[in-house]
C-alpha cells in the first residue's frame, strides 16, 4: 500500500466539495494518461470580481487523485482567478502534506483542471503543454519522457549527464539500467550507440592515489581557461549562498578542476549533484571535457613524486 499522509486519507475518506457546482460558469475536464485518471472541475465565478465563489470536483481516479481534487477546491475557493492560477501542483501536494513520487501527477492533474476551467471561463482554448511517461527515477519523481526529451535537447550521452540535467538517477541509482535503456534508444535514433563506462560505481571517498607527474603546464590559453572557470563559479555562488553554502576554486590540474565546498554545501548529500551541475556548466563554457572534484580528492604529493 502507498504511504499516504493523514491529510491525504482525510481528503479521500471525507472529500470536500465533491460533485458538480449547480450553476457553474466554468468547467475544466482533464485526464492523466499516466494512470487513466480523469477530473472535471466546475467553478462558480463572480463575473464582477472574478472571485471563485464555489468549486466542485468529480474524479475518476485513485485515492490521491480524489484527495488532490478535494484539496484543490479548498485552496482556490475565495481566490480570484488570477490568484488561483498561481497555485502550483507543489502547493496542492504541500497542502496534503506530500504525495508519494508515483502520485505527484495527481496534483499536476489538479492544477491542469484549474487552468482548463479558467480558460473555459475566459473563452480561451486550453492545450496541455506536457506529456507524462512511466516513472523512471523514484527518488526525484522523474518520468521517461522528461529523460528522453532532455537527452535529445542537450545531446546527452551518459547516465551521469542525465543525472546532472534532470536529477534522475542522482539518488539510490537503482534506475541507472532504465536510464541506460532510454539512452540506448534515443542515441540509436541518431545512429549513435550508447557507450557505458566500465563499472559505473565508485567509492564515495575516492582512494588517495599517488600523484602522477604533472603535465607540463601550457602557458598559452591556461590563464584564459582559469578566468572562464572563475567566471562560471562566480555566477553559481549566489545560488549556493542562498542555501548558506559556497564554493571556491582551489586548483586546476589539466582536466581536473578542484573546488572547495563550504558551509551548508560541505557534506550535504546533494554535494555530488552540485559538483555535477558545476561540471556541466564548465564543460559548456569551456567547450572541452573537464572533471570537477572536491578538494578532498586532490592527489597528495608523495615524497619524491
Amino acid at each position: 500500500m502507498w504511504d499516504y499522509s493523514e491529510k491525504v486519507k482525510e481528503h479521500f475518506f471525507d472529500p470536500k466539495n465533491a460533485g458538480a457546482v449547480a450553476d457553474a460558469n466554468a468547467v475544466g475536464d482533464v485526464g492523466s494518461i499516466n494512470c487513466g485518471d480523469a477530473l472535471r472541475l466546475t467553478l462558480k465565478v463572480n463575473p464582477e470580481t472574478e472571485i471563485i465563489e464555489d468549486a466542485g470536483f468529480q474524479t475518476f481516479g485513485c485515492g490521491s487523485a480524489i484527495a488532490s481534487s478535494s484539496a484543490l477546491t479548498e485552496i482556490i475557493k475565495g481566490k480570484t482567478l488570477d490568484e488561483a492560477l498561481l497555485v502550483t501542483n507543489q502547493d496542492i501536494a504541500d497542502y496534503l502534506d506530500g504525495l508519494p513520487p508515483e502520485k505527484m501527477h495527481c496534483s499536476v492533474m489538479g492544477r491542469e483542471a484549474l487552468q482548463a476551467a479558467v480558460a473555459d471561463y475566459r473563452g480561451e482554448e486550453w492545450k496541455d503543454d506536457h506529456e507524462e511517461g512511466a516513472l523512471i527515477c523514484k527518488c526525484f519523481a522523474i518520468d521517461e519522457i522528461m529523460v528522453e526529451e532532455t537527452i535529445r535537447a542537450n545531446n546527452l550521452h551518459t547516465v551521469e549527464e542525465v543525472t546532472n540535467y534532470t536529477k534522475a538517477g542522482g539518488g539510490c541509482s537503482s534506475c541507472h539500467e532504465a536510464i541506460e535503456g532510454v539512452l540506448t534508444r534515443v542515441l540509436a535514433e541518431k545512429g549513435e550507440s550508447f557507450m557505458a563506462p566500465a563499472i559505473g560505481g565508485a567509492p564515495v571517498a575516492a582512494p588517495v592515489v599517488a600523484a602522477k607527474p604533472k603535465p607540463a603546464a601550457k602557458a598559452s590559453g591556461n590563464l584564459k581557461r582559469i578566468r572562464i572557470i572563475e567566471m562560471v563559479l562566480e555566477s553559481i555562488r549566489p545560488n549556493l549562498q542562498a542555501d548558506n553554502g559556497d564554493v571556491e576554486l582551489v586548483d586546476v590540474d589539466g582536466k581536473n578542476i578542484y573546488v572547495h565546498l563550504t558551509g551548508a554545501c560541505n557534506g550535504c548529500q546533494m554535494a555530488a549533484m552540485t559538483l555535477g551541475g558545476i561540471q556541466q556548466r564548465l564543460i559548456e563554457e569551456l567547450g572541452e571535457f573537464v572533471k570537477v572534484l572536491p578538494d578532498t580528492e586532490m592527489p597528495v604529493a608523495m615524497e619524491g613524486a
Partner: peptide
Amino acid sequence: PESAFAPVYA
C-alpha cells in the same frame, strides 16, 4: 459516458 466526458489527456 465516453463522449459526454472526454477530458483533455496529458
